[in-house]
């Protein structure tokens, strides 16, 4: 008789499977996981996207009983997984262009409908550039038609594949190759960027969720929930990028956790346009703790702290905490 265990009692927030009931263990911990994104790919050390994609696709595969077709936008995930003549995908997978993954997925879903193969499910994936910027028109179209596609955005907050340029998901003050901090400029400006999950919700699609590689059980649960539904579903996953963020590869999961524990990346679910659950912050952290380990924010601390900018970022976190009710 296993007792009810909270993850933090296991000493880790990520796995802890050995102490859990079999049915509560992660897909990733099972021996029969599909290993859809198998080893040998060329992601950087500490890549949050590779970690997230592995959990997402394996969970989707389990929920679809391995009858899954995957569509991928151009980006890191596509490039590091399919360098000729190798492929890391042990799932039927296709890549077309940077900006059309949602539309290609629509086409795949339409073909399955035409052929009466309702048991086969469709997963589309892209980074934040492919999702919130260049692919946004197609994404909105797919949402608005409520096509039977689960779209997962792996958000590392800039165009990492091309060498860290600003995207519509880059946070304020972040230094990127196109928001430099030389000559006293302060990186990406405040007041820009789009909130893709909120825009997804505005389409009143059946399911929208945010998730993080800091809580892989939660990520798996959200994919499971999404796969249990039909129509357009969207999961936006926070995936730190050591290369683009200027962080240690070993810090990926910690940074992802800090992003949520500060309130900068709220974790929630929404159904039919209404928020239905939020992940409460267990131990609230100041935004400085999240920003300081990342070289993209170094100019906020050196040569002297940019008090004004730090306060503005803290205000963003505070606003999220109020908006989503992230504290008990």
């Amino acid at each position: 008789m296993a007792q009810k265990i909270k993850f933090y009692q296991t000493g880790t927030l990520t796995v802890g499977n050995r102490l859990l009931d079999a049915e509560n263990r992660s897909v990733q911990s099972t021996v029969d996981r599909s290993n859809s994104l198998t080893s040998g790919h060329r992601a950087c050390q500490g890549c949050g996207e590779a970690l997230g994609a592995r959990y997402v696709v394996d969970t989707a595969m389990r929920e679809a009983d391995k009858k899954l077709l995957a569509v991928n936008a151009t980006g890191c995930l596509e490039v590091f997984s399919t360098p000729y003549p190798e492929s890391s995908w042990q799932v039927a997978w296709m890549h077309s262009l940077f900006g059309n993954a949602p539309a290609v997925a629509t086409g795949v879903a339409a073909a399955l409908r035409a052929k009466g193969r309702s048991e086969v499910r469709v997963l589309a994936q892209g980074g934040d550039g492919g999702t919130v910027d260049i692919g946004f028109g197609c994404l909105s179209g797919m949402f608005e038609r409520n096509d039977d596609v689960l779209y997962v955005c792996y958000d590392n907050e800039a165009y990492m594949n091309t060498g860290v340029q600003r995207s519509g998901s880059t946070p304020a003050t972040a230094r990127t190759a196109t928001t430099p901090t030389k000559g006293g400029s302060k990186g990406n400006v405040f007041g820009q960027g789009k909130n893709a999950p909120q825009i997804a919700m505005a389409h009143d699609i059946p399911y929208v969720a945010t998730a993080s590689v800091a809580d892989l059980h939660d990520l798996e649960n959200k994919v499971t929930k999404a796969m249990g539904m039909h129509g357009a579903r969207y999961i936006h996953v926070n995936v730190p990028c050591p290369l683009g963020w200027g962080s240690q590869p070993c810090e990926t999961v910690r940074l992802a956790r800090l992003a949520s524990e500060t309130g900068l990346f709220p974790l929630f679910e929404a159904e039919d346009g209404i928020v239905t659950s939020v992940t409460k912050i267990r131990r609230r952290m100041p935004v400085e703790d999240y920003l300081r380990p990342q070289r993209r924010f170094a100019h906020l601390f050196k040569p002297k702290p940019d008090v004004e900018a730090l306060a503005a970022i803290q205000a963003i976190a505070d606003r999220n905490i109020r908006k989503y009710g992230l504290l008990d």
Binding site: L69, V71, M94, S96, L97, G99, N100, A103, V104, A105, T106, G107, V108, A109, A110, A111, L112, R113, A114, K115, G116, G137, C138, S140, G141, E144, R145
Partner: peptide, 28 residues
């Protein structure tokens, strides 16, 4: 027959949907 008629949001999407459909084995 069971033809799926998809109203899309742009020509870029129109051909992209056809690409996905064709790759999944449908006459597009």
């Amino acid at each position: 027959g069971n033809c799926q008629y998809i109203n899309v949001e742009s020509e870029f999407a129109a051909l992209s949907v056809a690409i996905g459909a064709s790759a999944a084995g449908a006459r597009a």
